[in-house]
Amino acid sequence: MQRVNMIMAESPGLITICLLGYLLSAECTVFLDHENANKILNRPKRYNSGKLEEFVQGNLERECMEEKCSFEEAREVFENTERTTEFWKQYVDGDQCESNPCLNGGSCKDDINSYECWCPFGFEGKNCELDVTCNIKNGRCEQFCKNSADNKVVCSCTEGYRLAENQKSCEPAVPFPCGRVSVSQTSKLTRAETVFPDVDYVNSTEAETILDNITQSTQSFNDFTRVVGGEDAKPGQFPWQVVLNGKVDAFCGGSIVNEKWIVTAAHCVETGVKITVVAGEHNIEETEHTEQKRNVIRIIPHHNYNAAINKYNHDIALLELDEPLVLNSYVTPICIADKEYTNIFLKFGSGYVSGWGRVFHKGRSALVLQYLRVPLVDRATCLRSTKFTIYNNMFCAGFHEGGRDSCQGDSGGPHVTEVEGTSFLTGIISWGEECAMKGKYGIYTKVSRYVNWIKEKTKLT
Results as ranks from 00 to 15, higher is better:
P301H: 09
V77D: 15
R3V: 14
Q2G: 15
I256A: 01
Y330G: 04
C119H: 00
V154Y: 11
I262K: 02
E72K: 15
V228L: 07
Y352C: 06
V243R: 11
K39C: 03
V277D: 01
T85D: 10
L60A: 15
K188N: 13
D131W: 11
L24F: 10
G357N: 07
H415L: 03
V153H: 06
H267Q: 06
S365G: 06
F251A: 08
V30H: 15
I256G: 00
N310K: 05
E171F: 09
N59T: 13
L346F: 06
E27S: 14
N283G: 07
E67M: 04
C435Y: 03
I429T: 15
S148Q: 09
P12I: 14
A26W: 02
T158N: 05
K446D: 07
R379E: 07
E129N: 04
S148R: 06
E285R: 12
S411R: 12
N113C: 03
D110Q: 07
H289C: 09
V92M: 13
F360R: 14
Y201I: 13
H303P: 10
C119Y: 00
K347Y: 06
E142K: 06
P301M: 12
H361W: 08
P414S: 06
T461C: 10
H303T: 08
C117H: 00
D131V: 06
G105V: 00
G236T: 05
A173P: 00
F238Y: 03
A308F: 09
S220T: 09
Q185K: 11
Q370L: 03
I214Y: 13
F395M: 01
I336P: 00
S448R: 02
R140T: 03
L19P: 03
M8L: 11
N166H: 02
I429V: 09
V248G: 12
N80Q: 10
V248N: 10
L244V: 07
L372M: 13
K274L: 06
V56W: 03
V296P: 03
S114E: 08
G409M: 13
Y441L: 12
H415M: 04
V227T: 13
D322E: 06
D378T: 07
M394K: 03
N138K: 03
N313V: 10
D93F: 04
H400E: 14
I7Q: 11
T190I: 13
I390W: 08
R364H: 10
T133F: 04
P120M: 06
E433N: 14
G432F: 05
C335N: 01
N393F: 04
T426H: 02
C252N: 02
F238M: 10
R373W: 04
R62Q: 04
T84C: 04
S220V: 12
T381W: 08
Q408G: 13
H303V: 06
K146G: 07
C28Y: 02
D315E: 02
K362V: 05
S350M: 08
C69V: 03
L383N: 09
P414W: 03
E129T: 02
E124Y: 07
P197T: 12
R162Q: 08
M394S: 06
R364L: 09
N135W: 04
P120A: 11
N5E: 07
Y115P: 02
T417V: 11
R364K: 14
L383S: 15
F224L: 13
T16P: 06
K387S: 06
T381F: 13
L372D: 11
N59S: 13
C119V: 00
R384W: 04
R298C: 03
V174W: 05
L23K: 02
C141V: 00
C102R: 00
S184C: 05
V277K: 00
T332V: 14
R379A: 08
P239Y: 01
T85K: 06
E270W: 07
S107N: 11
R358G: 11
F78R: 15
A307P: 11
M437E: 12
S220C: 05
E323H: 11
D405E: 14
E231Y: 05
G105I: 00
S217H: 08
V416H: 05
T264S: 05
D111G: 11
N452A: 13
P101L: 03
F238E: 00
E72S: 15
E116P: 02
V174D: 07
I299H: 06
Y22I: 14
D338Y: 03
T458K: 02
P120D: 10
G160R: 02
K126I: 13
K39L: 11
Q241G: 06
V227H: 06
G105N: 06
I316D: 01
E86T: 15
K438C: 07
G427V: 01
V202Q: 12
M437I: 13
P12V: 14
R364N: 14
F424S: 01
I443D: 02
G122D: 07
F224G: 12
A26I: 10
E73P: 15
D249N: 05
G355T: 09
S184W: 08
K455Q: 10
N343K: 06
I297G: 04
A266S: 03
C382A: 02
E171Q: 11
V278R: 07
N104T: 01
T276M: 07
K311Y: 05
Y201R: 12
K137E: 08
Y444V: 05
D33I: 08
S255N: 03
C128T: 01
I390F: 10
V30N: 15
E159W: 05
I15H: 04
K347I: 03
W261M: 02
N113T: 06
S49C: 04
E79R: 09
E82T: 15
